[in-house]
Simulated assay, not measured.
Amino acid sequence: MTALPAARDLAELVRLPAALSVPGDAWSGAAWATTSPGRGDAVTPLGSVLLYWSGMALNDWADRKVDAVERPERVIPSGRVTPAAALVVAGLLGAAGVAVTAVAGGHRALRFSVPLALLIVTYDVAAKDSPAGPLVMASTRGLDVLLGGAAAPGQAGAPAAAVAVHTAGVTLLSRGEVHGTSPLTAVAALTATGTAIGVLVSTMARDEVPLGHRRLALGFAALYGAAVGVPQARAVATPDATRARAATGAGIGGLTLLQAAWLAARGRVVPALVVATAGPLLRRAARAVSPT
């Protein structure tokens, strides 16, 4: 029988702090798909978090041989977690995540959580190092937004697109965390950040978002552009591994500000503030457990 890892090692395996960037996906999707919060708004993010943690555990299982050379301090190559235990953790978390989404949103939610779980497996096992890797990863976060907006997914398409574009840029840049990246890749990531803001601005103009909501959303968007775009611009100037890691970490944490902007545009001020504070919390927690 495979023994489960110790709590600290499990936290490292699943990148525990990075989950703070996940609930905003579901909440922003729900905000644009429905006119008022529902029961699923509180439960669906838990399913998303469980699926995210599952993907992180499976990622380390799939990368165990590469990590033995490039990142021997990680939990599997260091011997703190066995490959079998990591696979069990990934499977249990993935199954639990799908089950929670079914409880929260029924068959409508399963239309998104099941493909999301399959895409997570596809990315970790097959697509990560392929040219399609960033697109597959972007699709997982876009689906996560649509999962939150399962009641009316067509109306959640814009925030899903913005989060997906952001994720594609961060994923591209993350490939240079060990050996460095290229100026062109860093420019592509910076362009993705600008595009995500552009999707928000154009959607607010098209949907005639009230001025007060629009101003708050633009404020969060400006903070997002600074938090994510500035480290990416530094990576353009100096595309070494240190700058690539810094920009990747900023992209993971800064996503919460983009989510907050979408929530604010819909008038969900309190959820927007809650989501926005997740970024600073993630940065503090990252001192103990790396989110990348």
Rank of each mutant, 00 (worst) to 15 (best):
P131W: 06
R283D: 08
A68N: 01
A57K: 11
G249K: 07
V199R: 01
T238Y: 15
P72D: 15
A260S: 03
V81R: 08
R111H: 09
P183I: 05
P83F: 09
A162R: 01
T82F: 11
R111E: 11
L190G: 15
V22M: 03
T238Q: 12
D25H: 04
A226P: 06
G267N: 04
P210W: 10
G225D: 01
R245F: 08
A99N: 05
T181P: 12
A247Q: 02
P115R: 11
V22C: 14
G97K: 11
V209W: 14
L173R: 00
A18C: 06
L16M: 03
G253W: 01
T238H: 15
V49K: 00
T167D: 00
A150Y: 14
M204N: 14
A235V: 01
R39I: 10
G148K: 05
D63F: 07
V89Q: 09
G142A: 13
N59A: 02
L257A: 07
V66T: 11
H213I: 14
G79V: 06
T203G: 10
E208I: 12
A95T: 03
W262S: 08
T256A: 07
T193P: 00
V230G: 13
L50N: 06
L258V: 07
P271S: 08
V209Q: 08
H107C: 12
S182I: 08
Q232I: 00
P131V: 11
G148C: 04
T238V: 13
T203E: 14
G253P: 03
G253H: 01
P115K: 14
G194T: 13
S78L: 01
T2D: 10
A57Q: 05
V187S: 12
A104S: 12
A217F: 04
P131G: 09
G148E: 12
A127M: 10
P83K: 09
A276G: 03
V163L: 08
A158V: 15
D129P: 11
V136F: 07
T203M: 08
P271C: 08
A189L: 02
A62H: 03
V145N: 13
R206N: 11
L50H: 12
V100K: 12
T35H: 15
V178C: 00
T256K: 01
V125S: 15
A109R: 09
Y224H: 05
A6T: 07
L273V: 08
A19R: 08
R74I: 01
A151S: 09
A132H: 13
A68G: 14
